[in-house]
């Protein structure tokens, strides 16, 4: 599959939130205002890209040659946890202003299923190193797109008169449901028409 194909697949067709339900907790929790949504989206994109490349290397240089593939889940989650910690340290050193805006979200990303999810999916689909990196990047972009759209809608919703039982999380789920309905227009047929 071409890189464009991978990007379209993970941003639109298999959007991680609206189609695969990965990363639901931050999607509901951090989408109340636009700025934190952007911060979270970029932090996740960064980590998914780096993590899918790193886990690809682990899988193909360590686990497969030594016949340890049954340890996949344990190693991947540990690598991701270490990576997130490392990213946090680097960002704090290199760019304190970026750290200030991303800082609080970085520790949360370890338990974001999107990161472990794309790592396992990319290995399962037998992507090569660059394809894995692109898949991770695209999955993060899909997350960014969905969370930013959601935060814009929720900022508008805050001024609306919503029936009391629906206030807060329930209306967020129903909004997400309508977004998912719209994203159903992107399917495999679209990909075939675009790139054949």
């Amino acid at each position: 599959m071409t890189f464009i194909g991978i990007i379209i697949t993970y941003v639109f067709i298999n959007n991680f939130i609206l189609n695969q339900f990965m990363g639901m907790c931050p999607f509901i929790g951090v989408s109340k205002d636009y700025e934190s949504a952007i911060g979270m989206g970029f932090a996740v994109t960064f980590v998914t890209s780096v993590a899918s490349l790193t886990t690809w290397c682990i899988q193909h240089f360590l686990l497969v040659p030594f016949g340890l593939t049954y340890l996949q889940t344990i190693t991947f989650i540990l690598v991701i946890a270490a990576l997130v910690q490392f990213v946090e340290m680097v960002v704090r050193k290199v760019s304190p202003s970026l750290y200030k805006s991303l800082g609080i979200f970085l520790p949360l990303i370890t338990t974001n299923c999107a990161v472990l999810g794309i790592a396992i999916i990319a290995v399962g689909k037998n992507y090569n190193a660059i394809e894995s990196f692109v898949a991770g990047f695209a999955a993060g972009l899909g997350f960014l797109l969905a969370i930013v759209l959601m935060s814009c809608i929720r900022e508008k919703l805050a001024d609306t008169d919503i029936p009391k039982p629906f206030k807060g999380v329930p209306i967020a789920f129903i909004t997400a449901s309508l977004m998912a309905l719209a994203f159903m227009a992107f399917d495999a047929a679209l990909l075939n028409n675009l790139i054949g």
Partner: peptide, 25 residues
Amino acid sequence: RVIAFPAGALLVLGLLKAFFQYKEG
């Protein structure tokens, strides 16, 4: 059919949570 799709999952969970908030209120 739509209830079996991802959109339906979000809708059902949203309505159930609204129901629990209503009972709580």
